[in-house]
């Protein structure tokens, strides 16, 4: 026995390590309320480096792009795209608010407001692997950012806060396979759940009804069900609708409204309830 152990020491040790890792994985597989002190400390210690690298990277990236394109055209194009995105988002929001207003007026004579308590943050990093879809932002608990707060850009929802430290936070993007948001098609009011699929360039919406009438071109917005996300935030546009296996479920592929490849500044919604206007 002793001889067997000494002969296969390395293999036995490696097996023990693998067993420990597998049990560690099963312990941490479920979403945790708080991250460990070690994770928190590592994130805090490396944050200045991440910020520095990020700024350097952005600088070099911008420089390379500026060489590739004409600087003037790029700036103008960016500005116009941003304006168009804002106008589209506003238009959709306006339409949503109008229908909501009509319904509420009729029922309660209720005056709604869209003023939320928000904090702006800069994206300083992305998950280093090619599988998880997360970004790191430079605002954390010290700025009032907490787990599960919705994160958006001027074009729409991008995800929610999954981890926080004192001065940084991790945003789980809607593309992440672990994400999930209650949604509905703006035109037909059909509700469902939108989440990410590993390897897919689109978000996937699973309708609650198998007879959903959504069609390509329809806008998808948050439904407000589930209490994490307020209703009426733009998610994206339907590009394809299909029936699941055996015809029991109906799915839609959603092209997200924000450009996930160019996330630079984001807004964290500190409160999902609108602040009442006086």
């Amino acid at each position: 026995m002793k001889e067997f152990i000494s002969r296969n020491r390395s293999f036995i040790l490696a097996s023990v390590v693998v067993l420990i890792l597998v049990s560690l994985m099963s312990f941490t597989a479920r979403e945790r309320e708080r991250i460990s002190a070690l994770e928190r400390a590592l994130a805090e210690v490396t944050l200045p480096l991440v910020k520095g690298f990020s700024q350097f990277g952005t600088g070099v990236g911008n420089w390379a792009v500026a060489i590739a394109e004409s600087g003037h055209l790029r700036a103008e194009n960016e500005q116009l795209r941003d304006q168009l995105g804002r106008v589209t988002a506003l238009e959709i929001q306006l339409r949503e608010l109008t229908t909501e207003n009509e319904r509420l007026r009729a029922m309660l004579d209720f005056k709604a407001s869209t003023s939320y308590d928000m904090v702006a943050a800069r994206v300083v990093g992305r998950s280093p692997d090619n599988w998880y879809q997360t970004v790191t932002i430079d605002k954390g608990e010290a700025d009032g950012v907490a787990r599960n707060m919705p994160v958006l850009t001027s074009r729409g929802l991008i995800g929610r806060i999954s981890k926080t430290t004192a001065h940084s936070a991790t945003v789980m993007l809607l593309f992440d396979p672990d994400s999930g948001v209650g949604a509905m098609v703006q035109r037909t009011r059909e509700a469902g759940l939108v989440d990410g699929q590993l390897g897919s360039p689109y978000l996937r919406m699973q309708f609650f009804s198998r007879d959903a009438q959504a069609a390509p071109g329809d806008m998808v917005i948050t439904s407000g069900l589930g209490s994490l996300f307020p209703a009426g935030i733009v998610i994206g546009e339907v590009v394809k609708v299909e029936q699941g296996q055996y015809g029991l479920v109906r799915y839609a592929d959603i092209k997200p409204a924000p450009d996930y490849g160019k996330l630079a500044e984001v807004l964290v919604l500190k409160s999902t309830a609108p602040t009442p206007t006086k």
């Binding site: 490696a14 390590v17 693998v18 420990i20 890792l21 597998v22 049990s23 560690l24 994985m25 312990f27 941490t28 597989a29 460990s36 070690l38 994770e39 590592l42 994130a43 490396t46 998950s127 280093p128 692997d129 998880y132 997360t134 790191t136 999954s162 991790t170 672990d178």
Partner: peptide, 28 residues
């Protein structure tokens, strides 16, 4: 194995979600 375990564990702690996942894949 050891450098994979170390690098993967650091990745799990810094950017991962399930601690041990990248440690295992990188160690192997």
């Amino acid at each position: 194995f050891l450098s994979g375990l170390l690098g993967g564990l650091l990745q799990d702690l810094l950017y991962g979600r399930v601690v041990g996942l990248f440690a295992l894949t990188k160690a192997v």
